[in-house]
């Protein structure tokens, strides 16, 4: 009988403790190219998994698909096969108007503007990243030379509710809430962080996220490359700390 988890089609040993989580299955291979000896492990539905090495440590990249429902499944099943450190990596919309395009958001906490996490914990509970992962991403940004900014992300369920709010029957509520998030200091809008943070928190696992922000001005390819290299570098920082037995902070 197969021991594989149902959706990801993985079993223990297939993935490392450290997992990068892009939304897009098409981003797994480019990320895996930054590992040593990358190999494709599984593809099922929107879930593509590659594993490889950073030094002598096994690391993996698994796509979550779009949204918290599929991301929650990915994190749950990765926990079952032994992963305990998750870094979301992807693209987001800028919320603050002074954001230069290509700046990387390091997500410290997430607005639970989605329907998945209330199946886990009441809405009052904060979706918060691991401080150690946040610090590791900041250090990684220093090493890669990325322009980073720490802050809160909006995790929403409706992409078009963000980008085309005026055509929604509840347009005024969407506008009001967007303005509230902006005035609360949120920096970016994406669709998965809150579920990754809430589920990790419940399991005592570590989670964080780094997001390319689409803001003012054109994106460039080097900026996209910096997103991936910064995410991978943050795993190196965490691996170094874990090997040294460091307690954060």
């Amino acid at each position: 009988m197969s021991e594989k988890v149902h959706h990801l089609q993985l079993e223990k040993g297939d993935v490392g403790r450290y997992v990068l989580l892009p939304g897009d299955p098409g981003r797994c291979e480019p990320i895996a190219q930054l590992f040593d000896n990358p190999r494709h492990v599984a593809t099922n539905r929107e879930y593509v998994t590659y594993s490889g090495y950073l030094g002598d440590t096994l690391v993996s990249v698994v796509s979550t698909g779009i949204g918290c429902p599929s991301s929650a499944i990915a994190v749950e099943e990765l926990l079952k096969v032994g992963a305990d450190t998750f870094i979301r990596v992807g693209t987001s919309g800028a919320i603050q108007t002074d954001t230069p395009s290509g700046q990387l958001a390091i997500v410290t906490a997430a607005i639970r503007d989605e329907g998945t996490t209330s199946h886990y914990l009441p809405m009052e509970f904060p979706a918060v990243a691991s401080g150690q992962v946040v610090d590791a991403l900041v250090e990684a940004g220093r090493r890669t030379g990325a322009n980073t900014r720490c802050g809160i992300s909006q995790s929403k369920d409706s992409f078009f509710g963000e980008v085309e709010p005026d055509r929604m029957p509840m347009a005024s509520r969407l506008h009001d809430r967007w303005e509230a998030w902006r005035r609360g200091g949120a920096i970016c809008s994406e669709m998965e962080a809150s579920a990754i943070f809430i589920i990790s928190q419940i399991h005592g696992a570590r989670a964080g996220g780094v997001m390319h922000m689409m803001g003012q001005g054109a994106d460039t390819d080097p900026e996209r490359a910096l997103l991936l290299s910064t995410a991978v570098e943050s795993l190196r920082v965490l691996i170094e700390q874990d090997k040294a037995g460091a307690v954060w902070p």
Partner: peptide, 20 residues
């Protein structure tokens, strides 16, 4: 102030300094 979905989160520099 803000809808309930918004996280009540401390400043990480303050958190780190207090723990250290």
């Amino acid at each position: 102030y803000l809808p309930l979905e918004f996280p009540a989160v401390a400043d990480l520099d303050v958190t780190r300094a207090l723990a250290v």
